[in-house]
Amino acid sequence: MAKLCGEARRLKDKFLSFQISHVLRNLNSEADAQATLAVGLADGEVAEECVI
């Protein structure tokens, strides 16, 4: 998280304004599912799901 925080701080200076909001997990289940999936991936690994 510290690495991501540093990246967010660096990027924020490129915008005129920005806002970061905390959304509780139970109100954002799709993002929580994606984050849970990403935690299990190796560095640089990408997971893709194709729905037809």
Rank of each mutant, 00 (worst) to 15 (best):
M1K: 12
A2H: 07
A2G: 14
A2P: 03
K3D: 01
K3E: 07
K3G: 00
K3C: 07
K3P: 05
L4M: 12
L4K: 07
C5Y: 13
G6K: 03
G6N: 13
E7D: 10
E7R: 10
A8E: 00
A8Q: 09
A8F: 02
R9N: 12
R9E: 07
R9F: 06
R9G: 13
R10G: 02
R10P: 09
R10T: 14
L11C: 12
L11R: 04
L11D: 05
K12S: 15
K12H: 07
D13W: 09
F15P: 07
F15A: 04
F15E: 03
L16I: 14
S17I: 09
F18T: 15
I20C: 07
H22P: 09
V23Q: 10
V23F: 02
V23H: 03
V23M: 02
V23A: 10
R25I: 08
N26H: 03
N26C: 10
L27N: 05
L27A: 06
L27W: 01
N28E: 13
N28K: 10
S29E: 09
S29D: 05
S29N: 11
E30N: 05
D32F: 03
D32T: 15
D32Y: 02
A33M: 02
A33K: 15
A33F: 08
Q34D: 09
A35C: 13
A35L: 12
T36N: 13
T36W: 04
T36S: 13
L37K: 08
L37H: 06
A38V: 07
A38M: 07
A38Q: 05
A38H: 07
A38R: 11
A38E: 08
V39F: 11
V39L: 13
G40R: 05
G40M: 14
G40T: 02
G40I: 03
L41F: 02
L41T: 03
L41S: 00
A42C: 08
A42R: 09
A42K: 15
A42Y: 10
D43T: 11
D43S: 11
G44L: 02
G44H: 01
E45L: 09
E45W: 06
V46D: 06
V46E: 00
A47E: 01
A47K: 03
A47V: 06
E48Y: 15
C50D: 06
C50L: 08
C50T: 13
V51M: 14
V51P: 11
I52A: 14
I52T: 14
